[in-house]
Design a protein around this nucleic acid. Structure first.
Length: 920
RNA sequence: AGGCGCGUAGCUCAGUGGUAGAGCACUACCUUGACAUGGUAGGGGUCGGGAGUUCAACUCUCCCCGCGCCUACCA
């Protein structure tokens, strides 16, 4: 083995081996365990969020596979309608071609081409992460089977009246020329103005004042509303006002939507361009006057002067014209929430169009109940509140998109506009007895991408066919996802899953945090703070990293700032850490928090951890023979018994933490065992035994056996988190351990009862550690060279101490580097020494030329002071009668014991300090 | 406006009604036969502030301060 761990040399090789051997496929035996991957955008690339999520899912998958479950981790990708179409349109734009120039069919060919070209990138990147996905059954939301599922669901919902078509106000993206759902609109506060305009009363008796943030909508006003109880305006209700610039008069109506406290208490009502106004308009049967084109320019419904003007130019013009007419009362600066399309960034307009909707209330009811009654459990549980909040106020879902890339809506129209919905045109014709020459044309629109994603848990398994996979793996075991798509995806999967299979799609929903940069900022291309997981695995030099972060920026002026920040955080680029280190880092960060800051210090530390494992394995293999004879447990040394006991605890904890989705705690437990117990103590304790000529062969054999057995089990325990290094080492270790197997992947996860707790061994080893630490402290604090062998005297030694000393002197001598250990008899005078305390025993290192008296006195003084503070706290407790009366007996006893220990220590410190002082 | 969350060592974060923890960073010493991607020792925190419950609060309750996220919004 190399002297240090080289991830690049092993990772890809093992992945290919695993995939080729078919280890990722379900075993077909045991209880099913299934996770559906949240399908990433087919033309996208892997980002830190994916890598984090995939680490979690792969760890869960590998763990359950090793526990004997029939395990499926279902891979696949999403066609991501708007995002993908935009990318391809942009590519065409570079050649000055619009999709309309090409026409629908040719454009779709281009999209498919792009999908073929880039579509495997993310799958390849998932492989780099070590993801044990069942690639044989990879799916894509536009596959034949999944598309059939989409049509099936659409038709069934339509037949039940749960899908309808209607002319409604929707969020319209004037750049993309499509409707988007509420969830795809991001509203953020922006600076704007509030314009106050005078609307003259038709009867010539003055005017009223309305305020608006969107003056261009004046052209579409149908009324002015006041509150029905507003005394100021009682006389106006029922009158009309002359709508400025428009040569129309509109009524003043009363509606309690109006807040009389706000502004003037008069509100202009524009039913075709505002969601609230639309409601008011419905109540009062006001006309809907649409004044915008699909580009959000003024249309021909408006007065001629404004036709064809972009909304913002029209706004300026209208304000100017009203001012000229003396109707502008004032302009206030105003902060308002501006809705923008999450893809285009354009301000969306409420816009009146024909769209398809899902009636969600009936679907939501059982979906709410499933979480209420615990059929589905959110982890952490708090997220169920977020879910309820949204589901209880759910709005109908606009599912039609005016795009070309996606599932075309299975609806046809005849020349009179009559709608026919069916799985295919042929089915429609048959069902409605339409002759072949009867003219039908299919709806031009496609479905929202999330419509097909909502079916993912069962469409991937072959639904509507009752396939074996569906029966075996549905419902899935757990959905692993981020809180940002609880509404988009989780809620909709639950609704659709329950509707079409009668069962929930998964029984647990593990919501993990979102990866942020070192400052807690969301990673984004525009901020220039993204990290590519592959760059952390392979490393990247500074120049390449700078180039990556600054090419293709939407706002090129940010380039210098991004470069500066990048140089500051990564002055030498990023070194190679390897997949395992990255995965262990993600696992260690996977606590219950909602933000996960990615800190380079952590990944570096965990790369070192991998190296530690690597070198521990080197040591073990160096000290074990090819074929170990079986060991008799009665020959186990104390360290053997101890490390077995500790391993058992670690296995138990690992299992519990993984099963409770606390990978951070699992990682911590494994890290601590591996480094602080197995490497720091156990390996060191085996050295005296293995290196000594005097160790009996059977004891040596037992030690070698334990070395290899504990390592082999530890590798299996670590494997779900760090698959590559564990496989690489296991291949060398398993034969020595007498294990016959092709891969660690398919070995059983260790069982704690194979390494049961040994209380006595733990106690005895604590004594040894205490002894060694005492000497090391003296060495460290007194500046005694680590290599200098020390003479040690023991005073006030109890029979138990003596027995331990006799049995385990070898370990003490080696680990603490002792020349000899001498037990002082009762009353026997000790020379001047530095002192360490272990229980009632004093460990003395004679000073003779080694130790500075003042320094030792100072050192003891410090420990004395610490103990004094502690003792004071305990005595305060114990002198409190109600503590002694009311606290549990065990707590009181414990405090009493601590008090005795501290008192004894203090007395000994005092005695030593006095003794040192007398020497001067 | 409503909902959720956060505030613990210089930094990133665990944590439990009963002795405040880890990693990184820092200081000193050490190339000792697995590992300098290492070893040994050490310094560092009135757990955001206040009140309450309790024998006991970092932990539970309430209030306040600061920060963040989500949902819905008043023209």
């Amino acid at each position: 083995m190399e002297t240090s761990y080289q991830p690049a040399a092993i990772e890809q090789r093992w992945y290919k081996t695993w995939e080729k051997a078919g280890y990722f496929a379900p075993s077909g035996e045991g209880q099913p365990y299934c996770i559906m991957i949240p399908p990433p955008n087919v033309t996208g690339t892997l980002h830190m969020g994916h890598a984090f999520q995939d680490t979690i899912m792969d760890t869960l998958t590998r763990y359950h596979r090793m526990c004997g479950y029939n395990t499926l981790w279902q891979p696949g990708t999403d066609h991501a309608g708007i995002a993908t179409q935009m990318v391809v349109e942009r590519q065409l734009e570079a050649q000055n071609i619009s999709r309309h120039d090409l026409g629908r069919e040719k454009f779709l060919d281009k999209v498919w081409e792009w999908k073929e070209q880039s579509g495997n990138t993310i799958s390849q990147q998932l492989r780099r992460m070590g993801s044990s996905l069942d690639w044989e059954h990879e799916r894509f939301t536009m596959d034949k089977g999944l598309s059939e599922a989409v049509r099936e669901v659409f038709v069934r919902l339509y037949d039940e009246g749960l899908i309808y078509r209607g002319k409604r106000l929707v969020n319209w993206d004037p750049q993309l020329h499509t409707a988007v759902s509420d969830l795809e609109v991001i509203s953020e506060e922006e600076n704007g103005y509030m314009w106050h305009f005078c609307y003259p009363l038709s009867n010539g008796e003055g005017h009223l004042v309305v305020a608006t943030t969107r003056p261009e909508t004046i052209l579409g006003d149908s009324a002015v509303a006041v509150h029905p109880d507003d005394e100021r305006y009682q006389h106006l209700i029922g009158q009309t006002v002359d709508l400025p610039l428009c040569n129309r008069s509109i009524p003043v109506i009363a509606d309690d939507y109006v807040d009389p406290e706000f502004g003037t208490g008069c509100v202009k009502i524009t039913p075709a361009h505002d969601f609230n106004d639309y409601e008011v308009g419905q109540r009062h049967e006001l006309p809907l006057i649409n004044v915008l084109t699909i580009d959000a320019a003024i249309n021909d419904e408006a007065p001629e002067a404004y036709r064809g003007l972009d909304r913002y130019i029209a706004r300026k013009q209208i304000v100017a014209d009203l001012e000229a007419a003396g109707l502008l009362e004032k302009i206030d600066e105003h902060k308002l929430m501006v809705p923008r399309g999450d893809r285009s960034g354009q301000v969306v307009e409420p816009y009146l169009t024909d769209q398809w909707f899902v009636k969600t209330k009936p679907l939501a009811e059982p979906a709410i109940k499933a979480v209420e009654d615990g059929t589905i459990r959110f982890i952490p549980d708090n997220w169920s509140k977020t879910y309820f909040e949204w589901m209880n106020n759910i709005q109908d879902w606009c599912i039609s998109r005016q795009l070309w890339w996606g599932h075309r809506i299975p609806a046809w129209y005849d020349k009179d506009g009559k709608i026919y919905v069916g799985r295919t045109e042929a089915e429609v014709r048959k069902a409605h007895k339409l002759s072949a020459d009867f003219s039908l044309h299919q709806d031009e629109d496609v479905l929202d991408t999330w419509f097909s994603s909502a079916l993912w848990p069962f469409s991937t398994l072959g639904w509507p066919e009752q396939s074996n996979s569906l029966q075996t793996f549905y419902p899935g075991s757990v959905l692993v996802t981020g809180f940002d798509i609880i509404f988009f995806w989780v809620a909709r999967m639950i609704m659709m899953g329950m509707k079409f299979t009668g069962e929930v799609p998964f029984t647990e929903v593990y919501i993990h945090g979102l990866i942020r940069d070192q400052d807690g900022q969301k990673m984004s291309k525009s901020k220039g703070n993204v990290l590519d997981p592959i760059d952390l695995i392979d490393g990247i030099d500074l120049d390449s990293l700078l180039k990556k972060r600054t090419t293709g920026l939407m706002q090129p002026q940010l380039k210098p700032k991004i470069e500066q920040a990048t140089k500051k955080h990564f002055p030498d680029g990023i070194p190679e850490f390897g997949t395992d280190a990255l995965r262990f880092t993600f696992a260690a960060l996977a606590s219950n928090g909602r933000d996960v800051r990615f800190d380079m210090g952590r990944i570096e530390g965990y790369r070192n951890f991998c190296n530690k494992i690597w070198n521990a394995a080197r040591y073990v293999l160096m000290n074990t023979d090819e074929q170990l004879p079986p060991a008799d447990p009665k020959n186990y040394s104390l360290p053997d018994r101890w490390i077995r006991s500790r391993l058992g605890k670690t296995i138990t904890e690992s299992r519990e933490h993984i099963e409770h989705y606390r990978l951070d705690l699992a990682a911590k437990s494994l890290y601590e065992f591996t480094w602080n117990e197995y490497c720091d103590w156990y390996l060191e304790l085996t050295k005296p035994l293995l290196q000594s000529e005097d160790t009996p062969a059977e004891i040596k054999a037992a030690t070698q056996h334990t070395l290899i057995e504990v390592l082999e089990s530890l590798l299996r325990t670590l494997h779900p988190i760090i698959p590559f290094i564990t496989e690489e080492i296991w291949q060398r270790v398993a034969p020595v351990a007498g294990i016959d197997g092709d891969t660690i992947m398919l070995q059983p996860f260790p069982i704690a009862t194979d390494f049961s707790k040994d209380e006595k061994a733990e106690q005895d080893l604590d004594w040894i550690m205490g002894f060694v630490l005492g000497i090391r402290q003296i060495r460290g604090e007194m500046d005694i060279s680590p290599g200098k062998p020390l003479k040690v005297l023991l005073q006030d030694i109890a029979p138990t101490d003596l027995k331990l000393l006799e049995q385990h002197q070898l370990y003490l001598s080696k680990l603490a580097r002792l020349e000899n250990i001498q037990v002082l008899g009762n009353g026997e005078e000790a020379p001047t020494s530095a002192t360490a305390l272990l229980g009632g025993m004093q460990i003395l290192v004679p000073m003779a030329g080694l130790i500075d008296i003042d320094a030792e006195r100072e050192r003891l003084r410090k420990r004395h002071d610490k103990a004094t503070v502690e003792l004071a706290k305990i005595e305060a407790k114990l002198s409190n009668a109600s503590f002694v009366d009311r606290a549990p007996e065990a707590v009181v006893t414990k405090e009493r014991e601590r008090r005795e220990g501290l008192q004894r220590d203090l007395a000994q410190f005092d005695a030593q300090i006095t003794k040192l002082s007398e020497l001067e």
